[in-house]
Design a protein around this nucleic acid. Structure first.
Length: 568
RNA sequence: GCACCAGUAGCUUAGCUGGAUAGAGCACUCGGCUACGAACCGAGAGGUCGGGGAUUCGAAUUCCUCCUGGUGCACCA
């Protein structure tokens, strides 16, 4: 791809005799396409050159020569506006898409770098709810995008399969297992049991102590407790698999918290040796008060471990096993302090600086209900199953109205319903909290997954109608110089840059917005231009652009974890 | 109480490493299927960018302060 921004930057840098990097940083995209393709704000140089911006602008313009890539330079206010050669751009973009096809936008910028993405991480023996879904979808898309940019990516589902909660589960199982079948709706049975035992714990402190003791037994390898724990774990994984399969998500590792049960002694030892560990009220802690981070508990007073100990063991293990450059934790914002503490304590583990610097908590906003926070214990959660079921039904109804004879109806319904759900989960910045609303989550009009799918399907059907796919050699780029076509071209041109920004910011919602923008631009193009045309040359050009848009929409959606229907 | 995050149109939001008239979508009003798919498109209305101060040629964007909401702060994870 021709890097027009860099070309513009070079021109300015040479003329102004300033470093290219600095100049490139200043270059902007004008708010309006009529104002050019790139703009250089001369205000930035006013202080250094001790001249008024307008004077700098006209002096620079004076000295710069136009060429085959830059056709025009304008001065507006203190800005220098650059107009690039649109035909060259058009040719370049379409040839690149033709050449690379579904790999268009990919690159090797991440080659040689290892990235761990820890995501999904549901607690076993509990229902998979819409909060886990957001996490899963965000993590999966980052996983895909990093891979697309050449990184070596390891996706880890850090299962919540450890801790006092399982002591509670064991206690409940001990008391009431004969009342449940654990067959048709095993997770529901577990959840009922969990709610019951929690209520009992609230009433009776002794029961809670018994639960804590059970967890200690799990850690110590007590056969009965382990057996119950294993049973709950396999029941859960079976249920979760169904959801992951529907979403098309796979993990490279399912090593959850329990995996680290035999790896924590070493962490405690290292911390002890480093002098970081202190005794406090019978527990072992690392004091981070001086950093304003409170205290991080490593061992409880009953000698059992904590969540933090396990995360530290995971960091140690991962640095040795993977020697990662980045380790991204897709975990809800309520864990902000926890990760700050863990990353701080990790400094005492003696792992490479590279790994320490690569630790990053991607804190996403909580999904809440209009009635407040979801709670498994209170039974106030919306299960993903429920959401999927409702989505399938709503899409089915629409299909019956609009396109009752659709081929592979069930498959397409699934893609559309999941497309809506995934897109809804990923289209806003991850930092934002979400209040769940059925009508927003399952909206199919406007800025939604199905909208993009619809525009994609249109690119397909116009090509189908034409009955052929034009060769790039037959495309006359001069015929794609109208405003609508150019808008589409410039968005297509930005695809790779967009992906690079996403990785830089760890913000997949940028891709969601990009795909909406591309869809809207194509839709405008489609409405303004007749694609199937008597003039074969015009038709070829417009068909080819349609094909290109289809490729990028599909690639982009797949990166988000959205499948494209053939018809809808 | 302390800390972190958020506050942009009725609702959901983009823009936030300072820059040209703050962009969308939903809902609402009007218009467009005898044009390649109306899950679409066009037009309209809707904004003191939470309030106040500061920094400067210029602030939604940076800083300070206050307000509102969310989250967290030792034996849950």
């Amino acid at each position: 791809m021709i890097n027009f921004k860099e070309i513009v930057g070079q021109k300015i840098a040479e003329t102004a005799e300033l470093p290219l990097e600095e100049i490139i940083n200043y270059i902007e995209i004008p708010p309006n396409a009529d104002m050019g393709d790139y703009a250089f704000p001369c205000f930035k140089l006013a202080k250094v050159l001790r001249k008024a911006p307008q004077i700098i602008a006209s002096e620079l313009k004076e000295k710069m020569e136009l060429d085959d890539k830059i056709e025009k330079i304008d001065i507006v206010g203190g800005y220098l506006n650059f107009y690039i050669n649109k035909k060259l751009l058009t040719k370049n973009v379409l040839e690149e898409i033709e050449k690379n096809n579904e790999m268009y936008g990919s690159n090797n910028s991440g080659s040689g770098k290892k990235v761990i993405v820890e995501y999904s991480s549901p607690n076993i023996a509990k229902p998979f709810h819409i909060g886990h879904l957001r996490n899963t979808v965000i993590g999966a898309s980052l996983y895909n995008i990093y891979k697309f940019l050449g990184y070596n990516v390891i996706g880890i589902n850090h299962l919540g399969d450890y801790g006092t909660q399982f002591g509670k589960m064991v206690e409940g199982y001990k008391r009431w297992s004969n009342e449940y079948s654990f067959t048709t709706d095993a997770i529901q049975d577990c959840m009922d049991m969990y709610i019951r035992i929690n209520n009992l714990c609230k009433e009776d402190e002794k029961v809670l102590d018994a639960c804590r003791e059970n967890f200690k037994k799990i850690e110590d390898g007590d056969p009965y407790c382990l057996e119950v724990w294993n049973k709950l774990k396999s029941l859960s994984l079976k249920e979760f698999e169904k959801i992951y399969n529907l979403l098309g998500i796979k993990f490279d590792s399912l090593n959850g918290e329990a995996f680290y049960s035999d790896k924590m002694d070493e962490v405690v030892e290292i911390l002890e040796k480093s002098g970081a560990l202190q005794n406090s009220q019978g527990a072992k802690i690392v004091n981070l008060e001086d950093k304003g981070l409170g205290i991080c508990m490593i061992k409880k007073s009953n000698d059992s471990t904590t969540y933090a100990t396990r995360d530290l063991a995971a960091i140690l293990y991962r640095s040795r096993t993977y020697d990662f450059d980045k380790c991204l934790y897709v975990v809800a914002s309520e864990q902000n302090l926890h990760f700050k503490q863990v990353f701080e304590v990790a400094r005492f583990l003696g792992i490479p600086e590279k790994c320490l610097n690569g630790l990053e908590h991607l804190s996403y906003g909580m999904v809440r209900l209009s009635t407040g926070k979801m709670s498994t214990r209170e039974g106030t959660v919306i299960k993903v199953e429920e959401l999927f079921k409702e989505a399938f039904e709503r899409v089915q109804k629409i299909i019956e109205e609009k396109n009752a004879n659709l081929e592979n109806k069930d498959e397409e319904i699934k893609k559309i319903a999941l497309g809506a759900i995934v897109f809804n989960n990923i289209s806003t910045a991850i930092v934002k909290d979400q209040v769940f609303d059925w009508n927003i989550a399952l909206n199919f009009n406007g800025e939604t997954g199905p909208y993009i799918q619809y525009i994609y399907v249109r690119t397909k059907s116009v090509l189908e109608k034409a009955g052929y796919i034009p060769n790039i050699e037959d495309v006359n780029f001069d015929l794609l110089q109208d405003k609508e076509s150019q808008k589409v071209i410039s968005i297509l041109y930005n695809f790779e840059d967009t992906l690079m920004t996403i990785v830089e910011k760890n913000e997949p919602s940028i891709l969601a917005r990009y795909l909406i923008e591309l869809s809207q631009a194509y839709s405008n193009f489609y409405n303004e231009n007749k694609i199937i045309d008597k003039n074969k040359e015009i038709q070829d050009a417009r068909l080819f652009l349609s094909k290109a848009v289809g490729i990028v929409l599909k690639t982009g959606c797949n990166l988000l974890g959205i499948q494209m229907p053939n018809k809808m």
